[in-house]
């Protein structure tokens, strides 16, 4: 289900540099509401920087980034961000971490505990609500981060290699879980990954960034039908065809 009548996310003539180190040069990008868009690219090419710009943590030097005709600020209730390294509050338990967003908007304790618990259930951590983050494994921490972000029901979900720390099996479970949630809620997802299979399996669109500075990029649209279901899709011939063309693309870009 795509969000009906949603406005696209628009990046227009955007340039950005860290103290003279140019990362983006006149980047133009439009992402439709409800799209699942993956971004891949070599390490250090500016993927995290792009998400920070999209979230409003960084300001473009020129050009703009808009959604619903307004600039995005980090505090925007429509925005969710799962960081590359889990940024759970170490002094709060998993459940309290998951409650945080609701607490900020004044939801009562009973209700927010119930909602937060349901999202911990969703990411398979029902039993770990009263654990402090440092007693959870890296993968579990990342799942709590995901739950904590989803609790706020964001329309634009930015994810920075969220499953990078997970083992292959858990990763596949989480991918299916994410797709299921996305089907139900229809957020716009911008998903950074290093894993080509992951990008192919999840996305409508894959954007391939080059080494910095990035201006023009290449992208390919997915032809894989939805809904995609675990083993069937992953072993489908179309999946392999698509993956092959993507790899071809990346090799072209880099040579």
């Amino acid at each position: 289900m795509k969000r009906v009548g949603g406005e696209p996310l628009i990046v227009k003539n955007m340039s950005f540099a860290y103290d003279g180190k140019e990362i983006f040069n006149n980047l133009n990008l439009e992402i439709n509401a409800g799209d699942f868009c993956s971004i891949i690219g070599p390490s250090g090419c500016g993927k995290t920087t792009l998400l920070n710009l999209l979230a409003g943590f960084l300001q473009p030097n020129t050009g703009h980034i808009r959604m619903h005709d307004r600039d995005i600020i980090p505090e925007d209730p429509l925005l969710g961000y799962v960081f590359q390294t889990s940024a759970l509050f170490p002094w709060l338990t998993a459940l309290e971490n998951a409650e945080f967003g609701l607490k900020m908007v004044g939801v009562g304790q009973k209700e927010r505990q119930k909602t937060a618990q349901s999202y911990l259930d969703l990411v398979g951590l029902s039993e770990f609500g009263d654990y402090l983050p440092h007693r959870l494994s890296g993968g579990m921490q990342q799942r709590v981060s995901l739950a904590r972000t989803l609790v706020n029901n964001p329309h634009l979900l930015l994810m920075d290699e969220p499953f990078g720390a997970l083992d292959a099996l858990t990763r596949e479970v989480m991918q299916d879980e994410l797709l299921r949630i996305w089907h139900d809620l229809g957020q716009t997802v911008i998903f950074i990954t290093h894993d080509i299979d992951e990008a192919v399996y999840l996305s409508d669109r894959i954007i391939v960034l080059n080494v910095a500075p990035n201006g023009i990029f290449t992208e390919i649209n997915s032809v894989l039908p939805r809904p995609r279901s675990g083993p069937k899709t992953r072993t489908d011939n179309m999946f392999w065809e698509y993956k092959k063309s993507l790899i071809q693309h990346i090799t072209d870009v880099h040579h």
Binding site: A55, F57, P74, E75, P77, L79, G80, Y81, F83, T85, A87, L88, F89, F100, G101, M104, V105, R148, T149, N152
Partner: peptide, 18 residues
């Protein structure tokens, strides 16, 4: 205080005194 904690809180909606 970790910048990442502040960023995470902001993106979860914490403002000003919060």
């Amino acid at each position: 205080i970790q910048g990442s904690d502040v960023k995470a809180a902001r993106v979860l909606g914490a403002k000003g005194w919060q």
